[in-house]
Computed example of a mutant assay.
Amino acid sequence: MAGRLEGLRVERFFDDGIYPNSALPLLFYEAALPRGAADAEAMEALFSANGWPPAWRASVFPYHHYHSTAHETLGVARGSARLMLGGPEGSEFDVEPGDVIVIPAGVAHRRLDSSSDFLVVGCYPPGQNWDLLRGEADDRPRADHNIARVPMPSTDPVGGAGGPLLAHWRMGTR
């Protein structure tokens, strides 16, 4: 099962001294699933079919954080929100059901605002387990070391083996 790939936005966020971010670009798939057909079960089916096992259903933390041990995918299943990606100097994204964001290890993210029913399905490539870092002074250089060791996924959570993630991430450098 492949999601819709036409609404792809590619954005890079670089180290700001607090949040490492990544040379790998963040991918934002607008309406990867049709708006009216997007729910938690459909998101989980999309991710599973493309080799990214669903891990949780929840919201997004309301504070800047990042993961140094895993790439993360967020699929909006219900409601809407405004997210800040890339740390305080990053970019704001408005998300709705059907949207999917693939966040490389190290890229800061947080929820700025959301509807009361906002629900996200989160997933990671097989074998990757997430940690939670908030940009504290003692996070680095351990976080930088971890990020450099996170393996490249073998598939795109929206497009599978032929999806654009692999091409965009191979163009990025670590």
Score class of each variant (00 low, 15 high):
G90Y: 01
V76W: 05
A81G: 06
H64L: 14
R110W: 10
S80K: 02
D94C: 07
L83N: 04
F93M: 03
G90P: 05
Y63E: 09
A108Y: 07
G98V: 03
T69D: 10
Y66D: 09
F61E: 12
R111K: 14
M84L: 03
P88Y: 03
A77V: 00
R78V: 01
V107D: 13
E89L: 05
A77Q: 03
P62N: 07
R82N: 03
G98C: 07
S91D: 07
E89V: 02
R57V: 11
L74W: 15
H64V: 06
L83I: 04
I101N: 02
S68Q: 13
R57I: 08
R110I: 02
E89H: 01
S80W: 04
V107Y: 13
S68G: 10
F61S: 11
S59K: 11
L74T: 08
P104I: 11
R111L: 14
A81I: 00
D113V: 10
A77P: 05
G87Q: 05
G90H: 00
Y66N: 10
V100G: 03
H109D: 08
V95N: 09
P88T: 01
P97H: 05
V95E: 04
H65A: 10
S59P: 09
G75S: 03
I103W: 06
H67R: 12
V76I: 14
A108R: 13
G90M: 04
S91F: 03
G90V: 08
R82F: 10
L112Q: 10
D94M: 12
R78Y: 03
S59F: 05
V95C: 07
D94N: 09
T69F: 15
G87Y: 04
V95T: 12
H71W: 15
S80V: 01
P88F: 01
T69A: 15
G79E: 04
V95W: 11
V60R: 08
E92N: 01
V76R: 06
E89S: 05
Y66L: 15
T69N: 15
L74V: 09
H71T: 12
M84A: 04
I101E: 11
P62Q: 09
L74Q: 08
S59E: 11
A77F: 11
T73K: 08
L83P: 01
R110M: 15
S80Q: 09
A58C: 02
G90E: 04
Y63H: 15
I101K: 06
A108K: 11
A108H: 08
P97C: 01
H64P: 08
L112F: 00
L74N: 06
E92L: 06
I101Y: 03
M84C: 04
V100P: 01
G98P: 14
S91L: 06
V76L: 01
P97D: 06
L83C: 00
A77L: 03
F93I: 12
G106T: 10
H67S: 08
G87D: 01
A105T: 12
H109L: 13
P97A: 05
I103G: 06
E96F: 07
R57T: 13
G98I: 02
S68H: 12
G106H: 11
F61C: 10
G79L: 04
